[in-house]
Amino acid sequence: MAGYWDRYGRGATVCHRWPIEAKLGVVTAITVVALLIPVEHWPLFGVLLAVVFVGHSLARIPLAYLMRRLAFFLPLVLMLGATIPAAEGFSGGWETMWLIVFRSVVTFLALVWLVSVAPFDLLLATLNRYRCPPVLTATMACMYRYVYVLWDELGRMQTARRARTFKRLPRWRQWYEGAQLIGMLLLRAFGRAERVHGAMLARGFAGRVRFFDTRLLREVGRESGGDDDDAG
């Protein structure tokens, strides 16, 4: 997946300026409503979908991006939904399948909206403010920091492997190589974790991770006329 996950999270539209609590509330409400609407009231799904789309366009999220996300998401849900008609010998259950697919798509788009108007670090800072255990938020922040690093590392390792492999491997061999890639990445990741821990200790880490609102940084940057590069 190209780019980082919350790539549209740092815009300046109406949606971005809302307090995060309100956005979380809206998305949870949409999810619950989508789950509670019975099949007979199916037009309401259209209404809900329209609301979500209005939210997306207010946040200026490109349609192409949404389509790409949906292209990754829809096949999985369709496959899962198709087990219901398959269980009835394809003679019924289509209604249920579409219900499941619709509900999933609405809630998925709502989640995409949430992430696109609330960058992940702000979400974590908010969770922290609401007394989510610091172990969870701190490890999540650590994961968010390093997952791109590991992805890049994995990509380099795969490229290197392809460069050394001159023919297509048999299937069992591909399993073996895949596991070896992950294992090697695990060893490197743990080495990195130890270095990171050393660096944390060197900066006075004693078991407490502090969060701050990165929007403040951006404000400072704007006032001093500096370029706004911290979004990357």
Partner: peptide, 12 residues
């Protein structure tokens, strides 16, 4: 080193 280890494992 729990925090970096868990975070790194999740990333892995």
């Amino acid at each position: 080193r729990t925090i970096p280890m868990i975070g790194m494992m999740a990333a892995l």
